[in-house]
Each structure stands twice: as structure tokens, then as C-alpha cells.
Nucleic acid binder design. Structure first.
Lengths: 175, 175, 175, 175
DNA sequence: AATGAATGAGCTTTCATTCAT
DNA sequence: CATGAATGAAAGCTCATTCAT
């Protein structure tokens, strides 16, 4: 490992291998710390937005926005998340799977509540829509990461976010 | 040497490691063979469907159907594909990335042609819609694989397929 | 292994790996067979020459000639001898070392008898002169083999043989 | 990890295999390092002697002396050189062959200059005499190494050196 | 006799972890 | 705290030998 971030600032810190074991019991613990930080930020943001917004679109839109912001501010962290955690089954311990499932559950909950209040279609399982929504986000960011695609500016972030949301909510069919 | 039976045929699934090197130069070549077989089947099926069907929905629907069929018939291959190839960056050589990109290109092409003939919305980049569609599929199957979720029967396959297609084409918003 | 020679003719025979074990107990036995054939031919030729010639120069000259003939007629065998037997310590079993030492002993004997009859200088150990003579031959042929140097015709063979003999007997110093 | 002491210094001779890969990319690189060290010492010594001495006999004599010194001081290195590098074709990469050829070229050069100034006989190709000289040395040391022959003291070193040089320069024929 | 797929032991290489400094 | 050399276990790979056909 060569890089890490401290809490508030985007500081690239390069540590020697051995030092990792001064701070973390082993590689898995280091991983868990990164993972926990990632999910922690994500979950607390989701909770905030759940209170702040009422519309499902706003809640999910905030999620997309969060990913875009993180990608811009801390590309390395998103990179680790996508390649090492999200896309690698090698590191997928049951412990980490829980985060994933919890994440899915939260989104499913948002969607299910949308279905209950009739702002989201009822003829498709909330779980299935969750897969579609998350898959859209994940593939988007995976591709960005794999291709080292740079996101420049608010305009592009907005275009990407609204593309995902538009298709997810309105569908690929033309109006 | 261990053996296992898949649905219809006696298939040797596990061999002494050393034997791999009788058939493949190294682990990567073995991988490439599996990858190539997978993509080969996928690509030839896509070409067929491109001739067979005219509607974008039918073409993409066939794709979802293909994944579901493969998942039922050859769960191991799909498992390898999802966990080792699709979800693991460790094995993502530039060579293999090409397949992925080619896959995306083909889907983008289908969607772009749909846009040209006005059966797919024009206000979102074809590339972005590709991400969304593929992400939906991938997350779906990742989850199936990770949870060892069994697909039982035509009915369920149909339900899953139409869920994905419905949301992708009509959107999550109720009618 | 891919090639082998039968007794009298230069016949390249290509056999499949497995078959070797039909004729030889194991790799070492195959090796020993090749080695024994080589040394057998060499030793019987030396015995003949010992009777045929009286001069040390003729005896050693015949030896050089034999190597040159073999190199021309059976380059592969000489190649195996040089690279696998003479130049490789990996295959040097005590058994094979015996042949080598016996070979040295025979040459030392020739030289020692030369010293006794005063046709070879007495102020250098016969053993040391043996090393020098054999080293000259071996390096010569090693180089030929390593560089895949082709020997064409009697003239060149004669030139090489007389070079070795001239320097060995008369020294590098000009007359 | 085992340790051993050579004549004057504490030298770590045997390390855990894995550690090699901390210092060298792979086995071949380790080899190259040893080989390069050996040839480096040899070549720099030859250059020095080329300036220091004028007579061919002194230049070549210094070479023999160098081998004898190395054999006494660093028997392991000479052992590796003889058995793994000089006598083994398995490790003879084109890269390593270059060193060998360069070595031969340097000696050939010394001899050719001797011929030009008429201190070395002209009726034998310099290349051929190079083979003879090198073969003498190599076989000498191969035998020492293979038989684990101990060299004790200056006297014996001198005897060996002068034997090689005497025969090479004056020939095996008595005066 | 002949083939080449299969085996397994041993060598090569990697990598998480420890430890001396 | 920091470093990176050292360790050891496990993964990757080779190759002599066996075996079913």
C-alpha cells in the first residue's frame, strides 16, 4: 500500500509497508477501516438526505451526487472502493458483504416507500429496482475509474447525474 | 482429481493443478480461454439477435435472457465470469478489457440505432444508457451469484427479465 | 527428448516422451546409454590407436581427429556430450564422473609414457599436461557447438587438428 | 537463515529463498548479478594488467594468477562460476554468452598483439590459441572444483601457474 | 509398440506479516 | 513512530514419470 487519506483533507500520505502493522492488526483491518470510512460517510449522508428530502428522486439524486463529489475530491478512495471492494470478490468477507447488503436495504427502503406513496411504480419488486439503480451507478463509476476518466466541473457532473436519474425514472423510451 | 456432474453431462470440473499447464501456457492463458469462450458465445448470440429482431427491446431482452439461461445451465461459468472477470480488477488485463469495451460498444450501437429510429430517447447519451443497462444486468447477476440465489423455472426468469426491461425502458416512475 | 541415433546410421528418430520409459528405466538410464555409447566408441578407438601408433603426437592427434569426425558425422551426439555431459554439473553423477576420470587417466598414461621415453617434457606433471590438452579440446568443441560452427571438409579439420597439436607440443612461442 | 564465514569476513551465504526476491527480480537476475560481479572483477584486472605488463606471458600469467587467487579466497564464487555458468548450458542466455565472447575477444587480442610483435607464433590462428589457453585454464579449475581439490599455499599456486604457462608457451615437447 | 493426458513432487515466485534497527 | 530487510506459508509453475488407451 502506498497511499491513504486523513480525515478532512485530501492528503496523500505514503507509508512504508511495515508501518501499516503499527496502526492496523493486519491487511484486513486496514481494509475494514477504509471500507468503514467509505460506508460511514455514505450512510450518514443518506440519513441526512432522508430527512432533508421527501421525493425519492431527490434522495437517489443526492446519492448520485455524493458519488460524483467523492470521485472528484477523493478519486483514490473511490478507486479503492470500486476495484478492491465493490468489484473484487477476493476481499468480500461476510463482514463487508453486510455493508453492501445494508446499502441495498437502505435504497430498497427508499424505493419501497416510494412505491407505498405511489411515486414509484408498483409492478416491479423494489429489490429489483434497487439492483438496477445500483448497477447503473456502479457501472458508471467502474467505467470512469477503469478508463481514468476525469470529471471536469459542475456541468458535467450535472449531466451525468441527470442522465442516470432520467433513465432510471423515466425509462429509455422516448416520450 | 475430483469430478462433478452438471445438469446433463459428466463434466470434469477439478483437475490436478499441474495438468492445466499441459493445456495452457499459464494461469492467464487458462483465464483467457474461459473469457474467450464466454464472450464468444455472447457475441455470436448478439449477432444472431441483431438479425432476428428489429426492436431494441427485443435485442436487449434477448441479452438478459441469455444471461439467465447461462446462469441456469452453467452456473459455474457465470460464477467465474462475474467474480473473477467482471468483478475483479486483479485479472483485468488490457486484453480482457478489450472484450468488455467491445461488449459495451455493441450495446451502445444497438441503443444508438434505437435513438436514430426514435425508439429510444435522444436526450441521454447512448453511452450513458449503456452503462445503466449493463449495470442493471451485472448487479443483478452479481447478487444472484454472491447469494447463490437459485433461479427456478421459466416463470421466474421471465419475471426478472421483464423487471429489468420494464424499468430500463419505462422507468421507475409509475404510469 | 526428441532425437536419437541408432547404431550405425545417422537416423534421426523422433519419439514421444512416454515411449522413453519403454526402453529405459528412467531419464538417467537413457542418459547413461548415450554416455556409454559415446565413451565406448572413444575408448575403443583409443585402444586401437595405442597399438597402431607409437608416437604420443599420433595418439593424441588421433583423438583430436576422432572428435572432429564425430562432430561432422553426429553433431547432435557431440552436442549432447558437450552441453549435457561435459559442461553440465547437474548430470554429473559419480558414475559418469568415473568415465571422465578414466578418460583423463588414459591420456595421462599416454603422456606419462611419453615422458618416460623422453618424447614429452618432464618438468610438468603429466596430470597437468592432461588438463591442458583436454581443456584445449573441450573448449574448442564447446565453442564450435555453442556457436553452431559448421566444419566443412578435410582441410579445415586438418587445420584445427594441427593447430591444437602444434601449440600443445611446440608451444605458443615462435621458433 | 544460515551463516558462514569465509576467510576474512563474515559473509551471509545462505538466506531464506524468499528474500532473494527482495533484492533480485527473479532467479535469473540474481544469476546475472553474480555473473556480472565475476566478469567485472576479471575484466578490470585484465585492463590493469594490460597496462602494467608488456609481455604476453605476463598478461596471461596474471590471468592464471587471478583465477588461483579467487579460487583460494572465494571458492564458492569460483564454484558457481565453473559449475553454473561456465559448465552449464542451461543458464547460458545470450546475455551471458556475450561476457564469454568478450572474454575470449580480450584474450585473442592479447595473443594477436603478441603475434604482431612476434612474441607469439604466427602459424596458428590467434583464435585457436585462445581456445587452447582458455581450455587449459577452465579444465584445470573445473577439475579442482569437481574434486574439491584444496590449493595450499603460494608454492602450489606457483607450480600450477607455471605448468600452464610453460606448456602453453613452450609446448609439451622436451627441449 | 506408441501416444500424450494425467499425476505429483519439487522448484520458483509472491505476499502478508514480523522484527531488528 | 518509521523503515525496509527477513521470514514463511501458499500460490504458481515445471518436469520426470506413470497410465489408460
Amino acid at each position: 500500500m502506498t497511499k491513504s487519506y486523513n480525515n478532512n483533507k485530501l492528503t496523500v500520505v505514503s507509508v512504508e509497508v511495515g508501518l501499516v502493522y503499527h496502526y492496523f492488526k493486519n491487511k484486513a483491518y486496514l481494509f475494514d477501516a477504509i471500507v468503514a470510512e467509505w460506508w460511514g460517510g455514505l450512510f450518514s449522508m443518506m440519513e441526512e438526505c432522508d430527512k432533508k428530502y421527501t421525493l425519492v428522486e431527490d434522495k437517489l439524486g443526492a446519492l448520485v451526487g455524493y458519488f460524483l463529489d467523492q470521485y472528484e475530491k477523493r478519486p483514490d478512495l473511490v478507486h479503492v472502493f470500486i476495484t478492491e471492494i465493490s468489484r473484487s470478490s477476493a476481499n468480500l468477507t461476510p463482514e463487508r458483504l453486510k455493508f453492501f447488503k445494508s446499502f441495498m436495504d437502505r435504497i430498497e427502503d427508499i424505493i419501497a416507500r416510494g412505491q407505498a406513496e405511489n411515486t414509484v411504480r408498483n409492478d416491479v419488486k423494489a429489490r429489483y429496482m434497487t439492483y438496477i439503480f445500483l448497477g447503473a451507478i456502479e457501472t458508471f463509476f467502474s467505467t470512469l475509474v477503469l478508463e481514468n476518466y476525469p470529471i471536469k466541473g459542475k456541468a458535467q457532473k450535472h449531466r451525468i447525474a441527470s442522465s442516470i436519474l432520467t433513465v432510471f425514472f423515466n425509462g429509455a423510451r422516448p416520450i
